[in-house]
């Protein structure tokens, strides 16, 4: 293992891949006895208390993300404007309301109406909340103070995937009944009977099992991989930039040049991460809407 990789494994958890490990906000005595600072002492086992498991920095981050989203929508929501002309009260949107409606319409028209169609309004609140929550949490990966995308911990992604899974199966069952939904979800119209026994298990796997798995994994893997690349460029680059002959054997000044270039490149990587953060939030929302739409679709 190269010296830069050792550094990536890092002794300081806020630095290097240690960032992916959740740290308790209020470490218990048992936790502290098995950790040197934040670093786990090898071979030491302890039974974590519930605060060690549940009150961690990453969960706090997700909660802060949710509060930011709620705050944003409360700030931009339409409100009565005091105006000299009584006809204009609450009719002319304020600038804040305009911004909010612009963001809201992006999902309402661009995702919900286009994909779900008839009776789409019922799903707009969930889709808007989903999109804004994922977007805010993804952007935390590029934001000071947090510098960690919440969904690069796979559990958070599973949580949202399960929610969407419950939604699209729930609306399908509500509309068509349990067996009616299963039939429409596993047997496409026009498949001959002699093929049905081959097609049904395949459709079941594809529509009921693989969908939530890919939904969660796509979000997690994109953010995890992206954040890892950022880490390699920034941490590895800065280590190389400041390397001296005493840092490691085999040192050459090329290291410093390469480190500087890697740091410059990291800006480019960050730009890509911004794109990925927005794109993945959008894709998750679009796919949820599409699954809902396919659950509701009538047989023709």
């Amino acid at each position: 293992m190269g010296p830069a990789l050792t550094l990536l494994e890092g002794s300081a958890p806020e630095f290097g891949v240690g960032a992916f490990e959740s740290r308790p906000l209020f470490p218990s005595a048992a936790y502290q006895s098995c950790h040197d600072g934040w670093e786990a002492i090898e071979g030491c086992s302890y039974s974590p208390t519930w605060t060690d498991i549940w009150l961690t920095n990453h969960i706090a981050q997700a909660v802060i993300g949710a509060l930011l989203v709620i705050g944003f929508w409360l700030i931009v929501k339409p409100r009565k404007t005091a105006s000299a002309d009584p006809n204009q009260n609450g009719v002319i949107p304020s600038k804040r309301q305009f911004l909010g409606e612009y963001a809201y319409n992006l999902i309402r028209n661009g995702v919900a109406r286009d994909l779900i169609g008839h009776d789409y309004q019922r799903y707009v609140p969930y889709l808007v909340a989903l999109f804004s929550f994922i977007l805010v949490n993804n952007l935390m990966g590029e934001t000071f103070l947090f510098m960690f995308p919440t969904f690069s911990k796979v559990g958070f992604a599973w949580g949202l995937a399960i929610l969407s899974w419950l939604l699209y199966n729930g609306v399908g069952i509500k509309k068509k009944g349990f067996f009616g939904y299963l039939r429409s979800a596993t047997l496409p119209h026009g498949v001959p009977i002699w093929l049905a026994w081959l097609v049904i298990p395949l459709e079941f796997l594809s529509n009921i099992i693989v969908r939530p798995l890919t939904l969660g994994l796509r979000l997690f893997a994109n953010l995890f991989a992206g954040h890892l690349v950022v880490m390699v460029f920034v941490v590895g680059g800065s280590w190389l930039l400041f390397a001296t002959s005493s840092s490691s054997t085999g040192y050459s000044p090329v290291w410093n040049v390469a480190g500087g270039l890697a740091l410059l490149m990291s800006f480019f990587v960050f730009a890509i991460e911004l794109l990925v953060a927005c794109l993945q939030a959008y894709i998750f929302t679009v796919l949820t809407a599409q699954y809902v739409s396919s659950s509701l679709a009538e047989e023709h």
Binding site: L115, L205, S206, V286, L287, Q290
Partner: peptide, 18 residues
């Protein structure tokens, strides 16, 4: 709707994979 096929590629891929 012609705009409504963003996820079709992924659906198709999931059929092949499954």
């Amino acid at each position: 709707d012609p705009k409504g096929n963003d996820g079709d590629g992924i659906t198709a891929l999931s059929y092949i994979l499954s």
